[in-house]
């Protein structure tokens, strides 16, 4: 079976700085993949390239067989228009480190706004669905609150509900718990774990090694813009083949 996500030889440079030096990953439908690595290793940039928040310098991304952000015209790759790109992004959920909830909308409207404005759902229909999504992340009782009245953990759960409402084929988590106070991390991880158990396809960039070990089918260790090694979590996390991976895990676990 074709992979749901195919990343082919991805390169990304910011000016003279080469952040991704040729990364290729296939993710099967329903697979949970965690990416770990030191800061500056390029894992967040990789994730942002998948839905074209960053334009790759070279390489290609396919989701469900569809080329992302580009199309082929007479054998040449050209960038998509804003409208075409938006249609592709609607199927890829992105959970940000800093939540990025819309402060002028209630929790319910945060979740309902994209189904209404992007998918064209009627208000009532979008709100019923949004309520169900808030229910799923345990925040139905906060539906009418504005983001500033919610804790960080609650905000991130609303952000996850907002992504779920678009029924994405693929979910990307960019260090979804890194901006949270320690006591709030658990509630967000619990929601992500439940999503993993539903068989969703997820790509998770994380510093939570223990969490990565529990929920992932596969762990990738990245350093300096390249994949150093990958494999089942028990092998990568307990018995890594590379010295760099061992060093990184020791630093993380000795905190």
């Amino acid at each position: 079976m074709d992979p749901l996500l195919r990343i082919v030889d991805l390169h990304k440079s910011f000016g003279a700085l080469e952040v991704l030096k040729g990364v290729s990953i296939d993710v099967a439908k329903g697979e949970k993949l965690s990416i770990i690595g030191p800061s500056g290793s390029g894992k967040t940039t990789l994730l942002r390239c998948v839905n074209y928040l960053e334009k790759p310098t070279a390489g290609h991304i396919y989701v469900d067989g569809t080329l992302i952000g580009e199309k082929q015209v007479n054998g040449k790759f050209v960038h998509l228009s804003d409208r075409e790109l938006a249609r592709e992004r609607a199927e890829i959920g992105f959970v940000f480190q800093r939540f990025n909830l819309f402060p002028h909308l209630t929790a319910l409207d945060n979740v309902a706004v994209a189904p209404r404005r992007v998918l064209g759902l009627a208000r009532a229909e979008a709100e019923v669905q949004a309520m169900a999504m808030l229910e799923k992340v345990g925040l139905a009782h906060k539906a009418s609150e504005y983001p500033e009245r919610l804790s960080g953990g609650q905000q991130q759960r609303v952000a996850i509900a907002r992504v779920l409402a678009m029924q994405p084929k693929l979910m990307l988590f960019d260090e979804a718990t890194s901006a949270l106070d320690p006591e709030l991390i658990g509630e967000v991880l619990k929601v992500i774990r439940e999503l993993a158990e539903e068989g969703r396809t997820m790509l998770v960039v994380t510093h939570e090694i223990q969490f990565a070990a529990e929920v992932s089918d596969r762990v990738i260790f990245m350093d300096a813009g390249q994949i150093v090694e990958q494999g089942p979590p028990e092998r990568i996390l307990k018995n890594p083949a590379h010295e760099r991976t061992r060093l990184f895990l020791r630093q993380i676990l000795e905190r």
């Binding site: 409208r83 249609r87 992004r89 992105f94 940000f96 990025n100 994209a114 992007v118």
Partner: peptide, 14 residues
């Protein structure tokens, strides 16, 4: 981040 969140949900820049 507000623009990025909007785009990632499938909104056009407009």
């Amino acid at each position: 981040g507000q623009l990025e969140a909007s785009l990632s949900l499938g909104m056009t820049p407009l």
